[in-house]
Write a protein that binds this DNA or RNA. Structure first.
Lengths: 186, 186
DNA sequence: GTCTATAAGCAGATAGAC
DNA sequence: GTCTATCTGCTTATAGAC
């Protein structure tokens, strides 16, 4: 594995855990076991350039995970249930679920560049597109599918924040049980 | 108004906008127009002590706002609708809604003290208690009321994050329109 | 209760050797 | 491509005068 990929991999986790401002360059160098010179060779524009690369890495990892699950199960209801189960599984194994969200970056956006905002926005849109396509296949109108996709995205992201705050996977369990209500055709 | 309250008021906004790590002590002093000596007189244990005070201030402001609205409207559905309308109004007037959430702090929690985590958790529990009480009054069983309250909390917090990311109040509008589906008694 | 001066350490970033 | 040495500016925090 090359150095650049190593930096992206390790730094992605650090950013997800502690946020952008919460991770110092020296910490990155230490954990990656590299020098400043090496870091700046791969990211000439410094830490924020690394952040963008990490966000793209998170985006790929998260969307491909979701796509995988949504391709494996026939309905949105089943796929969503399995997806949340997977996140809960990660929580129970690793003790945290920061790897499943970019909320640590989103929350700092106000002080970061517009490129960061766009990269975050892109990820959310991609997630919602996956949900929306499945919902349309379930028979919802395009408009309704889009609305439910936003609601799914919001409630899952919000529930992840609640889980992190309460140190418990319960909020995710609760919304997993309630989401079917949203997927009823009235 | 005394200095301590002034510091708490101004710093609360800064923390909500930029997160804990994102706000330097010098910035606080500058905006409050006070000196280091004055700051450390009121908060001998430094910045994190100020954060706890600010979190309590946010907690009071947010819960009393919600309580106010939930007392004014007869059903959860109406109250929720009005509450989200209010947040959207703030977004349209101020261009942001960081004042309505503690997500910036929640996202940094992994690197902060356990006291911070508890204070954040407390706020979420208080919000859910207000929702849950109203839902019980609407006729839901205690258990169901608690579940829906978690879902409301998660989806609203999540939607706020989406709004901040997309620079648009649309996600809040979408969930406001969908929440009634959750409040249907099956 | 507020001020200034000071301190030790770390931030992100650069230069230039190898 | 990786290294060390260095730089500037900022970080939180303290001491002590007023």
């Amino acid at each position: 594995m090359d150095t650049k990929s190593l930096i992206i991999d390790i730094t992605t986790t650090l950013f997800q855990q502690k946020g952008y401002k919460g991770v110092g360059l020296n910490e990155i160098l230490k954990v990656c076991n590299i020098s400043k010179g090496s870091f700046y060779h791969h990211f000439p524009n410094g830490k924020e350039e690394a952040l963008i690369a990490c966000l793209q890495s998170m985006s790929e990892a998260i969307t491909s995970d979701i796509e995988d699950i949504f391709n494996r199960y026939p309905t949105t209801e089943e796929a969503t249930k399995k997806m949340i189960e997977k996140v809960i599984g990660i929580f129970e194994r690793e003790g945290t679920i920061t790897s499943c969200t970019i909320s640590s970056i989103v929350s700092e956006m106000e002080s970061l560049s517009d490129q960061v905002r766009h990269t975050c926005s892109d990820l959310y849109i991609k997630m919602q597109r996956i949900y929306s396509a499945k919902l349309a296949a379930d028979g919802f109108s395009k408009e309704t599918a889009n609305s439910i996709a936003v609601m799914m995205n919001a409630s899952i992201e919000g529930a992840i924040m609640l889980c992190l705050t309460q140190n418990s996977s319960e909020p995710l369990t609760v919304i997993s049980n309630l989401l079917p209500k949203l997927l009823k055709k009235v």
